[in-house]
């Protein structure tokens, strides 16, 4: 039986990165189409806790490799460890969420397996041995159906395109393995976390984003976000101007989000911004310029000044409660 191997990711704080569940959801879709078994892999210094958490998602097995050398994530040490496992399992497909780690690691892993890779996969087509991948090109202006002709096929997954796997589906067998450890020419120096009390941008149910129209004043954006339990986002122009930190950037060159509700305030809607939020379920645009391209993708638009609309929106929303 063919094997789909999904790589799980542990955050620096030791918890499971939530996008892993979307990757497992995607792995299930692929396994069903390919008539394959789903396996999950996890390596690190102390992966036991997370491994236990991964048992209930309907995989055949969770493969856990612990080694002190794998304390800090490095592509150079994680790729050989995971490649050796993939080879031992004779995995046909190896995938992971397109997180920063997924994007850094998977191509190196693919190179080690002499496999071709598809990045940011949004869906699978075909059945049995004849599987193709859907992925975006040109900043999401083109969707391509691609076929990988190497024996092993590697991919990263756009997490927002797949439902998170649901737990409580039996207990997968947890199999410990000894990861292949290779010396690394790279040393981990440090990780500086940007802390926020708000939800992670890519995981939030609601995102409130500001653009040039804010003129750098994000108070109203933040107030609305906090009322809604939302994450704060921004356009590239705003980040480049230094008004807000870059990790708030939504767009092709920033984060790709797909929340239930996306509120774009004072954002004109450059192609590259749209590429990062077009998959949101409901989009609200607030802009003074009735011709702004953002209105072409918005479900609901208001042509008005955001500094008038946002306070009023907050008081109207408060009435619902």
């Amino acid at each position: 039986m063919p094997i789909v191997l999904i790589v799980a990711e542990q955050q620096p704080d030791g918890n499971l990165r939530k996008a892993t569940l979307n990757a497992i959801g995607a792995g299930k879709q692929l396994a069903e189409k390919a008539g394959a078994e789903l396996h999950i892999a996890l390596v690190g210094k102390d992966p036991a806790k997370v491994a236990d958490e991964l048992k209930g998602y309907g995989a055949k097995a969770v493969h856990v490799g612990a080694a002190p050398e794998l304390e800090h994530y490095l592509a150079e040490t994680y790729a050989p460890a995971l490649a050796a496992l993939a080879q031992e399992l004779k995995a046909d497909y190896v995938g992971m969420a397109s997180t920063a780690q997924g994007k850094d690691l998977m191509p190196r892993l693919a190179a080690r397996l002499r496999a071709a890779m598809a990045t940011d996969v949004m869906g699978f087509n075909g059945s049995g041995a004849d599987i193709t991948f859907n992925r975006p090109m040109w900043a999401g202006n083109v969707f391509a159906e691609v076929k990988l002709t190497t024996p092993v096929k590697v991919f990263s997954l756009r997490a927002t395109e797949f439902p998170a796997a649901q737990g409580g589906q039996g207990a997968a067998e947890v199999k410990a393995f000894t990861p292949k450890v290779e010396a690394s020419k790279t040393k981990f120096v440090d990780f500086k976390e940007v802390k926020s009390a708000r939800p992670e941008l890519t995981e939030a149910r609601v995102v409130v984003s500001g653009g040039r129209g804010t003129k750098g004043d994000f108070k109203e954006i933040e107030a609305l976000a906090d009322d809604l339990g939302a994450a704060v986002g921004a356009s590239r122009a705003v980040c480049d101007a230094g008004w807000v930190p870059n990790d708030l950037q939504v767009g092709q060159t920033g984060k790709v989000v797909a929340p239930q509700l996306y509120i774009a305030a004072g954002i004109s809607g450059a192609i590259q911004h749209l590429a990062g939020m077009k998959s949101s379920k409901t989009i609200v645009a607030i802009n003074k310029d009735p011709e702004a391209p953002i209105f072409q993708v918005a479900d609901y638009g208001i042509v008005a000044d955001l500094f008038k609309v946002l306070p009023e929106l907050r008081s109207e929303l408060a009435k619902l409660k």
Binding site: Q11, L74, T99, D104, K187, K192
Partner: peptide, 9 residues
């Protein structure tokens, strides 16, 4: 630039 912060290598 990585998720939730900056890593130095």
């Amino acid at each position: 630039e990585v998720d939730n912060g900056l890593a130095t290598l």
